[in-house]
């Protein structure tokens, strides 16, 4: 069976290597400050004993007060998964560092999040809308989007 890392344990490991990067943690996930998300994810990918070589899924949720970007990481060598989240407060001009340099698999998913949620990923090679056309008003997966 795939082992799911408990968020609290994961937070401890991250805290050791990247102090002050943890914003919050629960059993399900570790929540990282958006500014440090790239370093933390790079660490998770490169650390010998974690080895998260695959970005399984990348998504975002609109919680009205804040947006949550969720990284589902997978280690095929160790058969483990973990969930990393980052919270972006506010509703306008949201940015978070792109992880396309770590995982190519993030390319299309980050574009999709920008398209549907309106979160910009910095340093993404091709930050354009993907499912909708350029010039579409608004970002439809936001809770305040009105048709």
């Amino acid at each position: 069976m795939t082992k799911l890392f408990v968020g609290t344990e994961l937070a401890k490991v991250i805290e050791l290597n990247h102090p002050d990067s943890i914003a919050d943690h629960s059993d399900a996930a570790a929540i990282i400050h958006p500014g440090q998300i790239h370093e933390v994810l790079a660490f998770l990918k490169q650390a010998e004993d974690l080895d998260f070589q695959v970005l399984s899924a990348l998504t975002a949720v609109d919680y009205i007060e804040y947006f949550e970007v969720i990284y589902h990481l997978l280690s095929m060598r160790r058969n483990t998964r973990c969930v990393i989240k980052a919270r972006l407060p506010g509703r306008e001009e949201l940015t978070i560092p792109s992880v396309t340099d770590l995982w190519r698999g993030a390319e299309l998913q980050e574009r999709e999040i920008w398209d549907l949620m309106g979160i910009k990923f910095e340093d993404h090679p091709n930050m354009k809308r993907i499912l909708l056309w350029e010039g579409f008003p608004g970002h439809p997966l936001r809770k305040d989007f009105i048709r």
């Binding site: 399984s56 899924a57 998504t59 949720v61 609109d62 589902h72 190519r104 698999g105 390319e107 299309l108 998913q109 999709e112 997966l141």
Partner: peptide, 13 residues
């Protein structure tokens, strides 16, 4: 929220 991780979509990367 219901996010679908669609394999064909991500395979196109």
């Amino acid at each position: 929220r219901c996010k679908i991780r669609a394999p064909s979509f991500i395979n196109l990367t």
